[in-house]
């Protein structure tokens, strides 16, 4: 069962035998069934060792560790999730908000609008665009936003980019359902944004389109802020 070479089989298996000994052992293995069987078993042992699965302790050791490092006891983390009806309602509400009601709200002061020069407020409006509810003060506010320098666009883009980075870094802390909701709503807003930008590009003097674009951009910023706040609340 055991011979001169048996005790060298592990070194052979690990590739640690000098060349001359390795050659000699390989010649021995051609006719020694016993050593061949041991070598096969050793290979199985090594493979099994490499395939061992890790498992944690049976009890949670964190409270004791936290006490030893002086950390405050961890508060119960609220995992944000929504029921399906809530998800559906959130999506519908979001799309509704990004629609015709946008002009009822005051646009955020930082939001840029069309790149082309705006026509005066009194410029003819396209038919079917309900501006009845837009007060004169609102019209002026929209124009004020529309005339902001392009630097505001950079500020908006930077804010969006920052929030997206926070969200990306922390998405692993949110449950998958919440992440899906956020992604779906962001996709909805991005589609609305693209439509609004195309519309404004075609008719930059249109107050409704400009305010709609501004509101959609504000909604995207707000959604990202809320998502970033969610990430912070679970970290």
């Amino acid at each position: 069962m055991s011979d001169l070479w048996t005790d060298r089989l592990s070194e052979y298996l690990d590739g640690e035998l000098p060349d001359d000994e390795r050659t000699e052992l390989e010649m021995h293995l051609r006719h020694c069934v016993s050593c061949g069987a041991v070598l096969a078993d050793l290979k199985r042992i090594v493979a099994r060792a490499q395939g061992l699965e890790d498992r944690g302790p049976e009890r949670d050791l964190w409270p004791a560790i936290a006490a030893r490092i002086g950390a405050a006891p961890r508060r119960e983390v609220r995992r944000w999730s929504f029921s399906l009806p809530q998800l559906a309602a959130a999506g519908i509400a979001l799309m509704a908000l990004s629609g015709g009601a946008a002009w009822l709200l005051h646009p955020a002061a930082m939001l840029p609008l069309a790149s082309r020069p705006l026509a005066p407020v009194s410029a003819p409006q396209p038919t079917g665009q309900p501006l009845d509810g837009l007060r004169q003060g609102d019209s002026q506010a929209v124009l004020a936003v529309a005339r902001q320098p392009r630097g505001s666009a950079a500020g908006y883009d930077a804010a969006v980019a920052d929030l997206e980075r926070v969200l990306e870094a922390g998405r692993g802390r949110l449950d998958t359902t919440t992440v899906r909701v956020i992604e779906r709503n962001l996709a909805t807003i991005d589609r609305a944004l693209a439509q609004a930008q195309r519309a404004v590009a075609a008719d930059s003097a249109n107050l409704y389109l400009n305010s709609h674009l501004a509101e959609t951009m504000r909604q995207k910023l707000e959604l990202l802020r809320q998502a970033a706040a969610l990430v912070s609340s679970v970290s």
Partner: peptide, 11 residues
């Protein structure tokens, strides 16, 4: 970090 690496360290 503790929760992410616990199983490997414990094993």
């Amino acid at each position: 970090l503790y929760r992410g690496h616990l199983n490997r360290v414990a094993s």
